[in-house]
Design a protein around this nucleic acid. Sequence first.
DNA 1: GTTCCACAGGAAAATATGGAGG
DNA 2: CCTCCATATTTTCCTGTGGAAC
Length: 336
Amino acid sequence: MIRDAEVLDEGFVPNDLQHRDAELTHLESTLRPFADGAPGQSIIITGPTGAGKTVTSKYVTGQLTDAVPNIQTVHLNCWRSHTQFRAFYSILDELGLATDIHRGSTPHDELISRLEAYDGDPVVVILDEADQLDSTDIFYDLHSLPKFAQLIVANERDQLFGRLNSRLQSRLQSSEHVPMSRYTPEELVSILEVRVRWGFEEETVSPDVIERIADAAAGDARVALGMLRRAANYAIREGHDEITFDVLEAAMPDAREQIRQRNVDALNDHQRTVFDIIRAYGPLSPQDIYEHYEAKMSDPNQLRTVKSYLSKLTEYRLIEAEGSTRDRTYRAVQSQ
DNA sequence: GTTCCACAGGAAAATATGGAGG
DNA sequence: CCTCCATATTTTCCTGTGGAAC
């Protein structure tokens, strides 16, 4: 059933990265001068888990290396190398400068001065899961070294900045910030489709299974791919030769309801009111929805805003639209 | 057909929000 | 406390579309 398990692996970087065009362009244009010899800068990439931060970082450095061969990339998983020593050591190690360094017998300063003395090709350092670092000094050191550019990958910018001392804050304040948001279910569907096409034999994963996984993953590509992997393993173990709805159901019970609840919890008062109205009064036109909403709220927003809510609710599959233009109505997606 | 109208959704301006620094 | 700044949300203005009424 599985043709190429690699494409389902965490850390797999596809040839064609989907849905991150704007972020890629931003990163490329920021790193381009560095590749051409300008001093390195710091770039901060933030976003929730599974939003594609790591894969985008790897992709952009891959592209850069293709275009400018004499540039190096070091990918550092800060969760694994969370102490300052290990982080510096890993970087030196990747650069082949750590052969005679031994833990315990080599002082910190020696590591730093080696980095300072480094005069080879420019290096892009990806500090993945940077919020895991015990010490933020590494940001400071890399920021001040012209031969190094750093991609600081973290969950939240504010949380990251909260840990920095003020001097470092003001230095990094001006660096480029690339925020990423979670994928929409549609985006996840197309990501999964490509992986399925490469990873599985034909006709082993049906479209509605993909849709269901995308739905349940709540914008987290890592979770989505994990579910697909889990369902595949389950199918193999149980002797099925394709992943059907039932197989998926058995491999991940009640995932959908949890995610649904999480989505509902994330709504603000206005959005929830709109959702409640649709749930209570069944299929309604936008105009009718707005009239209910206007009557119910003491500080109603404009129709255009409510229409944005409708898009958002649809995006997260809490409601569905039927009809294209004048005949369009919305109704709640029943939660089975 | 043709016209009309409610719709979707983009772009940009306006406004609210939240944190940093004075 | 206020001001500045970045970001997020909302409003305003708008274009294009297709079903409905004529």
